[in-house]
Simulated assay, not measured.
Amino acid sequence: MFTPEQRDRTRARLLARAESDDSITGFAHTGSHATGTGDRWSDTDIVLAVDGDIAETVNRWTAWIYCEFDTRHHWDLPVPGASVVRLFLLPGWVELDITFAPETEFGARGPAWQTLFGTPHAQPPFPPPDRNTVIGFAWHHALHAHICLERGRSWQAAHWINALRDQLITLACLRLDLPTAYSKGAHLLPDEITAPLESTLIRSLTAPELRRALTATITATAAELDHSDPELATRIRPMLTELT
């Protein structure tokens, strides 16, 4: 694994490259590095303001990053707008996330932002997940886990049980105003929410174990619904109980 020193040298080389590139008019850190909360495992998240053709700059920087860092892989994270978010895997498991943004989209969408140079523009914040959609995913996943068990599809049932737990965690984080993406707020949830979740973990792919885990997950989901949307909980709790 990478050392913090290796990661910091990578960041310094990226900043130097950006400062020497006429098409780059802004550079900002995002993520934990921008807020001073990072640790030795934190990855590198930067935003570049691009003057001119985004695709040309992305391709040129990608070629340079592969050559400069012996990069092993990259892929793009779909995002709204004209920005391109490209993730790179460097040797030593250094993860490099670069957002190539038009100058008009260069700006903070949340508190994790540190401008090193350039002029940021006001941006709308990232919207939180829609509560109704999260609840919809929850009952959808519970139903499909039950159906997979009836069909004898153990691996698919395990997938839906785990996915249901993810929606439950998102719903709880949303209610308590904690980070929702990628379970980033899960470690901040109170014990009365997380303790019951231990019983939702699947210990084997036998039918009895999967049914036990599904029952535990549905029970925890129903309890969260009582807090997040009591009126809706009264309507769908009996139906959720049918799946256990």
Rank of each mutant, 00 (worst) to 15 (best):
M1F: 15
T3Q: 02
Q6H: 02
R7K: 13
R7T: 04
A12H: 09
R13V: 00
R13D: 07
L15A: 11
A18E: 08
D21M: 04
T25A: 07
A28N: 02
A28L: 03
T30C: 09
H33R: 15
A34H: 05
A34D: 06
G36R: 01
R40T: 09
W41K: 00
S42H: 04
I46R: 03
D53C: 14
D53L: 05
I54M: 15
I54A: 10
A55C: 10
A55G: 12
I65M: 07
F69R: 05
R72A: 14
H73V: 12
H73L: 15
L77P: 11
V79L: 13
P80E: 11
V84M: 03
V85A: 04
F88R: 01
L89H: 05
L96P: 00
D97N: 08
T104F: 08
E105W: 01
E105N: 01
R109K: 14
R109H: 12
G110M: 01
P111D: 02
A112Y: 04
A112F: 06
T115G: 08
L116C: 07
G118L: 06
Q123F: 03
P129N: 06
N132G: 15
N132W: 14
N132Y: 13
I135P: 00
F137C: 14
H141G: 02
E150N: 15
R153P: 06
R153I: 11
A157M: 03
W160K: 13
I161C: 06
A163I: 13
L164Y: 14
L164I: 06
R165M: 09
D166E: 13
D166L: 06
T170W: 10
L171I: 08
D177Y: 10
D177S: 14
L178G: 01
P179W: 00
P179A: 02
T180P: 00
Y182C: 10
G185D: 08
L188F: 10
P190H: 06
D191E: 12
L201P: 00
S204P: 03
A213N: 06
A216R: 10
I218S: 04
L225K: 03
E231F: 01
L232M: 12
T234D: 14
R235Y: 10
R237F: 09
P238Q: 08
E242V: 12
